[in-house]
Write a protein that binds this DNA or RNA. Structure first.
Lengths: 188, 188
DNA sequence: TTTTCACCTGACATAAATGACAATTATTCC
DNA sequence: GGAATAATTGTCATTTATGTCAGGTGAAAA
């Protein structure tokens, strides 16, 4: 379900700090790709064309437009386990950040807006279910998939699914299995 | 969509009392971050980059640029205590958000970039000293003041000051005392 | 539907870019 | 301390992209 975002000249203008008149001139001169609506001739700019334009001109690309997000947040307090997950995902080409406690998990979640989160339900001082609920209740993380990786009981894992987890992976797990689940979720 | 203010070289020039020619030179030499428009190569400077530049060079930051942030983050797990602090600060005109655990504290800290944080050192599942260290180690929170409000031992409070707390307030406290300390820190 | 709002166009005003040179300020060396 | 040197900033003139305004119309919201 790839939603194709388009911008009006006014929106594009705000992103680069100019007036929409200027954006229209860029379009007229062929620097920025756009198409016209049949009515008044309103311009519409596809988000990916706009991002390409920004990159071409070394202009800053706003985070909410660049969705080539390969960032994965690993919430896991056991260092060896975190390192193992990280290794597998890094090798597959993802950007990986690890949060070993709730506070850091919160800061990284807000900063990185990861496309996927692996979540250990049982961590000292942080309730995994609560993290899950938070992610599902906040619009800005609607795109983020959550893969629960935990040694919880089957009941606990079941509950996680009900709370909005996209998939579960019981510990201990197989590396290939982990990667398969991650790729499948991200491909969705 | 991020509503972000940007400046032209001329505007930036007026703010620091130089000509725009000079501002361009700062940009060319890499001292001031900016990007160029595709047309004539006009420069645009993001307001936060400009403010960072001003601070870096100990130049005065004009009031209309220094985001007049009145947001206070209260990190406190006891509901009555949190409510009490909130009430006092709200009445004084601040925007107040409460985080009752580490995870929420992390998300709110990153999102709100509060001008002041009140921090309870003793909370279940989160070490206040760690939060303090985090805030002090991350540049984007350099402007945030931290007021430790805690029933800690004198030694613990002393340690907090060493870790970068701007002030401390032992529990139980007087409302006026709280407000006085907050106002003093923010006025700094 | 009606109303509001955002966008389009064209003409004009504004202000930013550039390059060269002058003026000012800081630094170095004796 | 004072002079020579270097570095930074200001000034000027020209070019032109960008901003602004007004009048109009479709698009979207209520």
């Amino acid at each position: 379900m790839t939603e194709l975002r388009v911008l009006t000249t006014g929106e594009a203008a705000k992103y680069c700090g100019v007036t929409f008149r200027t954006v229209i001139r860029w379009i007229e001169r062929g620097r920025l790709k756009a198409y016209k609506l049949p009515g008044r001739g309103d311009h519409r700019i596809r988000a990916d064309d706009f991002v390409a334009f920004l990159r071409e001109n070394q202009m800053p690309v706003p985070g909410d437009l660049a969705d080539d997000n390969r960032m994965i947040l690993v919430i896991e307090d056991q260092p060896e386990m975190a390192a193992a997950i990280r290794r597998v995902l890094k090798r597959a080409g993802y950007d990986v950040e690890v949060a070993a406690d709730g506070f850091v998990a919160g800061t990284l979640l807000s900063q990185l807006k990861p496309c996927l989160i692996t979540l250990d339900l049982k961590m000292p001082g942080i309730d995994g279910h609560q993290v899950l609920t938070y992610v599902r209740e906040h619009e800005e993380h609607a795109q983020s998939k959550v893969l629960v990786i935990s040694a919880e009981t089957p009941e606990g894992l079941e509950r996680a699914l009900q709370n909005g987890a996209n998939d579960i992976l019981p510990k201990p797990f197989d590396n290939n299995e982990l990667l398969a689940k991650v790729e499948r979720l991200i491909a969705e």
